[in-house]
């Protein structure tokens, strides 16, 4: 089956009929709910946090945030998906916005951010006036700014291939995040990938390794340990070459961090 991302831009793919079909499928409802719960588990937030839901769609993910006592603001590029969210009386405040254009909030607004099954769309947005790289960096730079110091984000996404996976994680690290990747049920058709991001803390928390909090999470592999600045884009190198070179570097250096957890029943592969 072809990937939706390869068939049309997201605002056209998620039209009225697809938005209804997507939201009313009990299979999709339960998958999105369980992935959102997993995101929250990784975020480990205090009650009553303010959360940004990126690519909130019709509110299947937001509903879980609400259930757990959080307040959320959602942004999505599809008016049809947001219309279904309205019909379903979701509690989050909704914004019609394109994450590839940035995150239009004051610095330090959110305690945390989640994104469930949306970020891979950014890899498909090449057009005459924008590149996927440009949109990815606008997104991650904006996300970084919009989170409070010490804030966290967990993004579940479906990369099409290794290149997309590296593009996305690379853009996150470049924006300044401490980053880790977690894979649940690898090499099965239920495989799920989570990008775990932390915002370095300034001020009273300065001096703590920004990746420390990621590293402590069970099963998370740290992508970049203060690696920022180690690999720089060489003159004349294309973005793709840079990514490939960086990927090689990460492969060589990549440390595996794995701890026992209540999830040990599931098979998990730490890649990279």
């Amino acid at each position: 089956m072809s990937r939706p991302e390869d068939t049309a831009p997201p605002d056209l793919f998620y039209d009225d009929s697809e938005a209804k079909k997507y939201t009313s499928s009990s299979r999709i409802q339960s998958i999105q709910a369980s992935m959102t719960r997993r995101c929250l588990e990784l975020l480990d937030l205090p009650n009553s946090s303010l959360i940004l839901d990126i690519g909130c769609g019709s509110g299947l993910s937001g509903e879980i945030l609400d259930e757990e006592g959080h307040t959320w603001i959602g942004m999505d590029i599809s008016a049809s998906m947001l219309a279904v969210a309205l019909d379903r009386d979701t509690t989050g405040d909704l914004l019609l916005a394109d994450m590839g254009q940035g995150i239009p909030f004051r610095p330090g607004t959110f305690d945390a951010a989640v994104s469930v099954s949306a970020v891979q769309w950014l890899c498909n947005a090449e057009s005459s006036d924008v590149t996927a790289q440009g949109r990815l960096s606008r997104f991650f730079d904006g996300l970084y700014m919009s989170l409070k110091r010490g804030g966290k984000a967990v993004l579940q996404f479906y990369p099409k291939n290794e290149l997309q996976r590296t593009m996305i994680t690379g853009a996150a690290v470049k924006a300044g995040f401490g980053a880790g990747l977690l894979e649940d049920d690898p090499e099965t058709k239920n495989q799920k990938l989570y990008l775990v991001l932390t915002v370095g803390s300034g001020g009273e928390l300065a001096g703590k390794d920004i990746t420390e909090s990621v590293r402590k999470m069970e099963g998370v592999e740290v992508i970049d340990q203060r690696g920022r600045g180690v690999v720089r884009k060489n003159k004349g190198e294309t973005a793709k070459e840079w990514i490939m070179r960086k990927k090689d570097r990460d492969r060589k250096k990549g440390k595996v961090v794995k701890k026992d957890s209540k999830y040990t029943g599931r098979k998990r592969r730490i890649a990279f």
């Binding site: 942004m75 590029i77 947001l82 309205l86 405040d93 909704l94 914004l95 019609l96 916005a97 394109d98 254009q101 239009p104 006036d129 924008v130």
Partner: peptide, 9 residues
């Protein structure tokens, strides 16, 4: 209730 923040590129 939904604000439109889509911008021309």
């Amino acid at each position: 209730g939904i604000a439109n923040f889509l911008l021309p590129n």
